[in-house]
Design a protein around this nucleic acid. Structure first.
Lengths: 188, 188
DNA sequence: GCCCAAAACGTTAGTCACTAACATTCTGGC
DNA sequence: GCCAGAATGTTAGTGACTAACGTTTTGGGC
């Protein structure tokens, strides 16, 4: 073998390469203008191969590794707290622990994601996290309906905060997220 | 003229006809299995005409006439209330005034809409309402970021309540919605 | 009833995301 | 160098959606 045990392997390398090429094309020409065929060509790969690594064009932009962190942070909150409280506090905690270099990648993607045509894709992506959060809350004894509502409302607030930040031109990303969660808490 | 002033006119009749035909096909065969070409054929109309009346296949299921009601109800809430409070109370008021025959149509559509493949379409549809609600709140003096978060969280809670109800098999739809809003209020 | 502009509709030809089936090349351990 | 299996390519297709342009239909004025 030419690689150590930690070496990515060809598939993983191809996947990462396609991702980098796609993100760059998106940033230069806009998401809509870049066809999958063009991504494939720029990556020196067939269109089919793109689809083998990413289930859809959206996934190239929204392949989000941070969702598990959120679920874990929520799970770490006191079980006796009501579901919405756990969700809010959990997201807050997860955000505080986000490494700065990851924040920069969030920034790049969000700038692209504000395109209205991507809104649905973002939400579909969020739906998976939402289901995971709701399942966690429910497993800890929360009422199923309340768990789903709490998960949906909290993640919606988070996304709204992120997107609003991305549409503006300045301000700290972290503060935007925390402010969004504060709004949610003002509901009583 | 052959119609009185209140008569729909041809375009409106065609639009309504396509809608009824489509909904019936969806209920019989499932959303995925029904192509737009098939809808057009069953409605005795060209595929192009379907697209002239509905911007997308999704819209045939999610063309929601209730969104303006929600916006209006929120606008009617006291302006001095914080945005999230206005949004919650507005949705609650709008729901209480929903005529029962409309509730039945909501029921039919939601049964279809629980299909995972439609989740993205639902969210895209919600996004339009969300923007309208946020614009309204902002126009009445709310902080832009807070307005967006309040709109997003409230509508997400509403949709979560509706979907959770639709996945179950019984229970009053109205109560499910009101319960969802109650969860949101428990955040303080 | 007739006329006519505008609205509504149809036809055609295309783009693009995405999928299935099958052939081909390449990788990595022996 | 060999070879099984992974990775990739090719081809051919489906279906949502759009643009351009021609045809029919509608409905108000005469």
């Amino acid at each position: 073998m030419t690689d150590s045990a930690a070496t990515p392997g060809k598939a993983e390398r191809t996947r990462a390469h396609i991702f980098r090429v796609a993100l760059e094309l998106f940033e230069h020409h806009g998401y809509e203008e870049v066809t999958v065929a063009r991504i494939a060509e720029a990556a020196g790969v067939s269109e089919m191969t793109v689809y083998r690594h990413y289930p859809s064009k959206d996934a190239l932009l929204l392949d989000d590794p941070f969702d598990p962190l959120i679920v874990a942070a929520i799970a770490a909150r006191p079980r006796q707290d009501p579901p919405l409280r756990r969700a809010i506090d959990g997201v807050r905690a997860a955000w505080r622990e986000l490494p700065l270099e990851h924040a920069e990648e969030v920034r790049r993607r969000l700038r692209l994601a504000v395109a209205p045509s991507l809104r649905a894709a973002i939400d579909r992506n969020t739906a998976a996290t939402e289901a995971a959060v709701a399942a966690r809350l429910e497993a800890d004894g929360a009422d199923p309906a309340a768990a789903r509502v709490a998960a949906a409302a909290t993640l919606a607030a988070l996304m709204a905060g992120l997107l609003h930040w991305a549409e503006g031109d300045d301000g700290a990303l972290g503060e935007a997220v925390l402010a969004a969660l504060d709004v949610l808490e003002g509901a009583a």
